[in-house]
């Protein structure tokens, strides 16, 4: 029955393709809508008929973003916080993951499980205790306070993800390095990390996007323009029950660009990392 089997395969392929197209539409339409809304004048946004493309395109929304809000400061703050958190996640995640994957010490299993548990605690439960801690440390309304807060969810995740990946690196390679006189850190940086680039790319990408998109903590812990991030800046386009859609969509589109660039840079490794490291351990 080779023909029937081939027909079934073709049918499955078709169904798969249709599903992929549907998913693509599902994913891209909100972005498309965001972009076209940012280019429409208010009257068209509020018009009776929703227009698929701007009939009278305008950059007024973007002009408003740059003239009435300190948008570039928000971008700067988000970049500082997301960048610092990404570096810290990579550094502490690597060290922690290596220790948990390779070293034997009391409480290792408990810590490894604790990583997953701590990652699963909903942020809504933590924002009040964290506010208290940051108040005492006088870190409310500071970049450092927000970076420290983001460590609390990005480092456990990074460690957990890297731990799985490190387990997949053959132990013999390390042992050979140790025999040749390499220390633990040397082994980590010279042997393990170069072999784990896909996993590091995933960690960097997730840490960056999580910090970039985070809203709740940024909203609660930050007051001043000097520290405010993009996500909380966007909410200032809602005044009471009036939404300023044009500038809000413009700002949202601009704020989506940096994670997109990061993703495009790391795309090849990210996909590889997701399919390898994430399922091991």
């Amino acid at each position: 029955m080779p023909r029937t089997r081939s027909g079934s395969r073709r049918l499955l392929k078709w169904i798969g393709n249709v599903l992929l197209v549907l998913l693509l539409v599902w994913t891209l339409v909100p972005f498309y809508w965001m972009i076209v809304t940012s280019l429409k004048p208010d009257r068209e946004i509020y018009g009776f008929e929703a227009t698929l493309y701007p009939h009278q395109p305008t950059l007024a929304g973007y002009a408003r973003v740059f003239t009435t809000t300190p948008f570039l400061k928000y971008v700067r703050n988000s970049a500082i916080i997301a960048g610092a958190n990404t570096l810290a996640s990579l550094l502490f995640g690597c060290l922690g993951a290596y220790a948990l994957a390779r070293l034997r010490f009391p409480g290792r299993a408990l810590i490894a499980r604790g990583l997953v548990v701590s990652y699963l605690v909903p942020p809504a439960l933590l924002f009040i205790p964290l506010f208290a801690v940051l108040s005492v440390l006088r870190l409310i309304d500071t970049h450092q306070g927000l970076i420290l807060t983001y460590f609390s969810f990005s480092v456990p995740f990074s460690t957990w993800l890297l731990m799985g990946y490190f387990h997949s690196v053959p132990l013999e390679l390390e042992e050979a390095a140790l025999v040749d006189g390499c220390g633990r850190l040397g082994t980590l940086f010279r042997i393990i990390l170069p072999m784990s680039l896909p996993a590091l790319a995933v960690v960097a990408f997730f840490a960056f996007t999580q910090s970039w998109n985070e809203f709740l903590y940024a909203n609660v812990f930050v007051n001043s323009v000097e520290v405010r991030t993009i996500t909380t800046g966007l909410t200032l386009f809602i005044v009471e029950d009036v939404f300023f859609w044009g500038p809000m969509m413009g700002a949202a589109f601009l704020s989506a660009l940096p994670p997109l660039v990061v993703y495009l840079i790391f795309q090849r490794w990210v996909v590889k990392g997701l399919t390898l490291g994430a399922v091991k351990g």
């Binding site: 924002f127 909380t232 909410t235 200032l236």
Partner: peptide, 18 residues
């Protein structure tokens, strides 16, 4: 500090608690 009206309640609750 400029606080978006929609988000003021959560922020205020946290600050009072702390």
């Amino acid at each position: 500090a400029v606080v978006a009206g929609e988000q003021a309640n959560a922020k205020l609750a946290a600050s009072i608690e702390a």
